[in-house]
Design a protein around this nucleic acid. Structure first.
Lengths: 214, 214
DNA sequence: CGCTGGATTGAGTCCGGTCAAGCCTTGTGG
DNA sequence: CCACAAGGCTTGACCGGACTCAATCCAGCG
């Protein structure tokens, strides 16, 4: 059910999902399937409809950095140039809306869409910068705590699902799976979180989690 | 002297500096002076005219991450929201063009400017992501080599100036000044670079430098 | 020429990585 | 429905690269 307040809010700041509704092509991807590869022609944007997507860069010797995780309503493919600068893969079963860049050009002059894209790009930059501080200057336990806090805040519920593997988390945080596992153990011993399964947790003490994330 | 080719190029892809020429207010800052602080209202963009600027984030306990260095022709202040999310400081003597965001709105519809801003934002995102890979997954020597390579490529000349201190470099790379110093020493012993002074170097073997940067 | 602050160098420590073993969950096939 | 296999996760022991602390060097500047 949609309230009047919701309608006003939507009118003031329509989301990308709303603006792009009905546009583009719906595509499905299985767990670990690639949506696009680094080097592929970047002729489309992808709006995540459901599931989780990771973007990654692989170095010659196999080292991997996860640049980001994307959930429903988030946009992938904001890149300069005509080739993708990283790979995007489905973390679990994923549905996306693929929108050709050329199709967007047809909207030129749509102020609401322009504005939403501009905001999304700036938001994306802000996230990359936060991520940089995390990886550049925080300890292993701070990184893991920060990651869990972010995820819990994005989700909202008391039980938080971890769609990604330990390897994904480690490569996102610039750590190893062993270190991630140990830090999770520590946070649990400190009764800050509780791992109800290895892909699901709940926050026991929010203040302590925020403090641990520094 | 401006050739016909230059004019055509400028017409095809005018730079931000060209588009904003004559706009805004020229400001000067002394070494280490702040252009704006984290938390300040973000009502302007700043186009660097001369000198070098660093953007930084400081954590509660004094740890610092340098998010980026900006040189002549580059734009600072692409941020969502109305408050700056980091501090910008002059690395050496700096001149900038301060342009009110509201003044830019007056240009709405200027397709060339819109396009240039959009490109700048995407370029900035790409740089942040490269930086993330550097800090998240590269060794100390790779980080330093990569930094020197980037700087040398941006500069062009055989002699490259380092406007920033070792502390700035360390905080950009997620290392300590001692480690930066040691890695510089190693690169010099390997005859890949030559430090003509501690703020100036030249590349001896480009292939080796690129290789060391992985 | 001496002062001062940044840069270098050295010695020792520690956090996170590596290697290895074992556990637990999930899924599959008898 | 259970046995088993396989892959992901955890745990432990040890190692090493980068950090810390400290002494010294050196360049720029008054």
């Amino acid at each position: 059910m949609t309230s009047l307040a919701d309608i006003r809010l939507a009118a003031a700041q329509p989301t990308l999902a709303q603006l792009l509704e009905g546009q583009g092509v719906r595509l499905s991807f299985a767990k670990d399937e690639a949506i696009f590869f680094e080097g592929d022609g970047a002729d489309s944007f992808y709006l995540v409809v459901s599931g989780a997507v990771r973007t990654t860069r692989i170095l010659g010797d196999g080292r991997r950095q996860v640049l980001g995780f994307y959930f429903a309503g988030e946009l992938i493919g904001l890149e300069p140039g005509k080739a993708h600068r990283f790979t995007a893969e489905a973390v679990d079963a994923v549905e996306v809306l693929a929108i050709r860049r050329s199709a967007l050009k047809a909207f030129a002059g749509d102020a609401a869409l322009d504005r939403a894209l501009w905001e999304a790009a700036q938001q994306e930059l802000a996230r990359a910068q936060e991520h940089l501080v995390l990886v550049g200057r925080m300890t292993a336990s701070e990184r893991v705590a920060h990651f869990l806090k972010d995820l819990a805040e994005r989700t909202g519920g008391p039980q938080v699902q971890l769609p990604m593997s330990r390897q994904d988390m480690a490569d996102y945080l610039g750590l190893t799976i062993e270190t991630v596992s140990r830090m999770l153990g520590q946070l649990q011993s400190a009764e800050i979180i509780r791992l109800t399964s290895c892909r699901r947790f709940s926050v026991q003490r929010w203040d302590a989690l925020r403090h641990a994330a520094a």
